[in-house]
Design a binder for these strands. Structure first.
Lengths: 344, 344
DNA sequence: ATAATTAACTATAACGTTATAGCTATCCAA
DNA sequence: TTGGATAGCTATAACGTTATAGTTAATTAT
């Protein structure tokens, strides 16, 4: 085991001062060319690497970005992280991951740890429980400490910071319109509970499209999936409710706010021998792996996770490097796009 | 914006020395109870938090674990990360993520960055390109620096460190036997190229099962999927090859080394109106979201990513905390289990 | 010849901690 | 009444850097 060599050790070995070594390695003209070269050669031979922690302490920046997400085993979030990681690395930043697991408490804890620690800024998407509680003190405190925060996807207007969102409402409206244009007027909506900001926006878009086409919304055709911890229960709730509805009501299309919901719906329809898209056509949000490999494959609304991640990282890094002022905030809106597959 | 208060500032405010403040906050009996309480109250009121970077510098440990994985948008790896994150957080460690994207160069770069920086140890799964090149100098150098490394899933015997693997060969053998017991003897294997350690082991298991049952292996029934960067090409290669084989040869079962391969196979079979599992039954590795939501759902071999992540984190943290000696290495083997669904 | 300039280095402080050793009253024992 | 113990505090060094402000000795200008 070879411990990493320090400036001090090099200085001692070569009988010069630490300053001389430091300056030589920075190729400072204050140091004579001969000494400089000798020191550089020695450092190279001993594979000298500056100690980044010492640098972090000195410079008061860590070149690390913290990311807090509700879940990691999730197509959309993993795409976003991947993209954040990619962009950040290119700009010389590391990425540290924290998972809130949709829990308020864990999110607060994560923020605390990150904010005391090794990060310069935070990119996050808010946990469902936090949205429900409407308690955002931890985020505000972090911002007050001068740590820039960028919110993506699940955001709240109450917090002043950079944000990256998707035109959820518009996309849901357009998708609904596509279904209506296909002469389907009994459109069932599979959505999440009201406090989830994006689910809510998508519901609004759905309702607006109906209204524009003078279709009376039917509350029986809106299933708000209760989320229990442990998705098994969540899905069986969805399946039971859906089965009830399709047995009692005419349904000729389904709009799902995510692909898990749509995938589960597909199972229910198959079990009941309803053909997709002939009898019921489906469009869902989240362009993930389920949509591509299910059969029929699902038409989905892509939220362009890569772009979201990239923009979030860009906004944050611009703040960190002082490219943008620390008290002006932008909200970037990414346009969704509908990817047509077999289910519609 | 409120900057975080430091010991020095508290000391100045209360007209005591920095040492007194430090000791008071640690509740040292060297300091009189009155002073101590006063200081603690002041610190609390000003929301004092120790600067972790200063601590890292002092203690020469960062309480952070680096994880290098080939991909993040990948069910298995995201499960493992999730589990590493969970276990590490519980033990007071942060997790920093780096993605090699299956590239050797990026993996080396990632290692360099992590090893110079803010981490105490590394958990990694080796990139395909690295396996192909057989160049592991970066891993060895990191270990030589006294940074403990734990390898999981894709490992190599050449490196001396803790490892966590799955009994790939045995699992593939057993799955093959299940198919044979179902009177299917023309089993097609969808595997990766030889240099991928796990693919190779699974192929071996498949061949061994055939041998045990006196079935002559047929090289036409083994498709080694060429991986191109950009999985689109990779999949179309698989689909073309598979289509050729099923048209020219009798095939009554398929064993896939991962669920993407199996999912793609399912598409090909559907396109050719071959019923699953009646005409061809399928078993695949990787118990992910495709397997559950495809139809028919896929029987899969679960590699228990959560357990892998947990064990990896545990092994690493034991090294970091000195619970296990730094020159004795363990290889933990996780048993796969076959999850039977509709495809077999 | 002497002051001013410059080249080539070094010392010091600082980033925020903590551990070790050191200091100064006060108190008790002999 | 003096020396040792103790309580309660402080000074210092160290972790590994870098920036600022010195310090020499040699060189140049006048």
């Amino acid at each position: 085991m070879i411990r990493r060599i320090t400036l001090k050790e090099i200085a001692n070995e070569l009988n010069v001062s630490i300053s001389t070594v430091s300056k030589s390695l920075k190729d400072s003209h204050e140091i004579g060319i001969e000494t400089r070269e000798k020191i550089k050669a020695f450092a190279k031979a001993h594979n000298y690497r500056p100690n980044n922690i010492a640098l972090s302490l000195k410079n008061r920046k860590t070149k690390t970005i913290g990311v807090i997400i509700p879940e990691i085993v999730h197509h959309f979030f993993s795409i976003v992280i991947n993209s954040i990681e990619k962009f950040s690395t290119e700009s010389g930043y590391n990425v540290i991951i924290a998972v809130s697991n949709e829990s308020f408490e864990k999110e607060v804890l994560n923020m605390e740890t990150l904010a005391n620690g090794h990060i310069d800024g935070i990119i996050m998407s808010i946990a469902k429980e936090t949205l429900k509680k409407q308690d955002f003190h931890h985020i505000k405190e972090t911002i007050d400490l001068g740590i820039p925060v960028v919110l993506f996807d699940r955001v709240i207007s109450e917090i002043k910071c950079d944000k990256v969102i998707v035109n959820d409402k518009q996309a849901a409206k357009e998708a609904t319109q596509v279904l209506i244009d296909d002469n389907r007027e009994n459109i069932l909506l599979l959505t999440s509970e009201d406090y989830v900001s994006v689910g809510n926006l998508r519901t609004e878009g759905y309702l607006e499209a109906l209204k524009d086409n003078d279709i009376e919304p039917d509350s029986n055709l809106i299933i708000k999936v209760k989320d229990k911890k442990g998705s098994q229960l969540e899905m069986s709730y969805l399946e039971d409710e859906l089965e009830k509805v399709i047995k009692s009501k005419k349904v000729d299309a389904i709009l799902g706010v995510n692909e898990i919901y749509a995938g589960s719906a597909l199972k229910v329809l198959k079990k009941n021998n309803i053909s997709v898209p002939k009898e019921i056509s489906i469009i869902s949000f989240t362009d993930g792996v389920i949509s591509r490999y299910s059969s029929p494959s699902l038409s989905t609304i892509s939220q362009h996770g890569e772009i979201m991640g990239e923009r979030s990282a860009e906004l944050l890094i611009n703040k960190l490097t002082g490219k943008t002022s620390s008290n002006e905030f932008k909200t970037e809106i990414i346009n969704c796009s509908l990817i047509k597959r077999e289910s519609s």
